[in-house]
């Protein structure tokens, strides 16, 4: 059974996608963050555009920083954003 995943966007990622989150049914063949991004890029031209350069993006899975190779497993929340600039 597909599990639901919330995808949160911040900063210019949010502005360019035009909303702050999506809730998707995680496809079974997307086992990692990178594979899920690939799936989204094929699915929608907006993702294709915003996720074109993965070097400019950072990811957090259930509020912990992860890389593209991180397994999604039963994660509930994926966040996609540019490098942080606080402080």
């Amino acid at each position: 059974m597909p599990h639901q995943l919330s995808i949160m966007y911040f900063s210019w990622v949010k502005e360019r996608i035009g909303r702050d989150q999506d809730v998707i049914d995680c496809p079974e063949n997307a086992e990692t963050v990178g594979q899920l991004l690939e799936y989204l890029r094929i699915k929608d031209a907006v993702y294709q555009d915003v996720f074109a350069d993965l070097n400019k993006l950072r990811f957090a899975l259930d509020q912990d920083f992860v890389g593209l190779e991180a397994p999604l497993r039963s994660a509930k929340e994926l966040a996609i954003f540019p490098p942080v600039t606080g402080g």
Binding site: P83, V84, T85, G86, G87
Partner: peptide, 13 residues
């Protein structure tokens, strides 16, 4: 401070 600038999820516009 050094860590905060690179691993805390804030974005400045």
């Amino acid at each position: 401070m050094d860590q905060l600038k690179t691993v805390a999820p804030f974005w400045k516009k």
